[in-house]
Design a protein around this nucleic acid. Sequence first.
DNA 1: CCGCTTTGACCGGTT
DNA 2: TAACCGGTCAAAGCG
Length: 214
Amino acid sequence: MNSHHHVSSAVNCFNSTLNLSLRLSSITSQINMVLSKEVSPKELQKRQSPRWWDGTQHNRPAVVEVMLHNKKEFLLQIPLGNPLENTGGRILQLDKEGSVSSLAPRKLSHAPGSDLHSLQSSQEGWSPSITREKVSEDGYRWRKYGQKLVKGNEFIRSYYKCTHPSCQVKKQLECSHDGKLVDIVYIGEHEHPKPQLNLPQAVGCVLSLVEEKT
DNA sequence: CCGCTTTGACCGGTT
DNA sequence: TAACCGGTCAAAGCG
């Protein structure tokens, strides 16, 4: 629970940071993203759309190790000059052994009423439950408005909008065939409180940063 | 009936 | 200019 809280805080903190960075991207010189584990620039490039950076040396992101809430994290610093303005930051979720997961396979993906259940059940360790619950891991409600298999991508990308009236925040996620969450992108920032839930911590897998380095 | 997902079509930016 | 591609729309279907 404590770790949940920490994770949640970290998520919020970095979502804000990220979004702010994006907004001010014309001024700032870099964007930070939180990675669940260290990824090579090559791997990153593979996962990102080519629009993010062209893979040339000078555009390579730097992975920086930091301590965050007593946890070891990896920050990805992306040199601007990449057209990130419209895309938002990408938070990679490279789960190693299925620690993060649970998007049901496309057909089954209905998971109705998974709203609170999966969240609550996510107390075991923390199965992130980034499924299609209305109230998601980050505490907001999302509505899916599309999905697509992006060229060159191994997995299908799903598009979600925040359901809060007038909120324009979107997110994209990619899940592997067996339902494991692979990738999340948040676009924009919420300027409204999270919907009311009595969730202990609507934590989720926004970051699979639970490396529990002790 | 309502809110959501699904999914093919469409749009606009990029090459 | 056209082809390509990622993102979005919206009708249909579902629970």
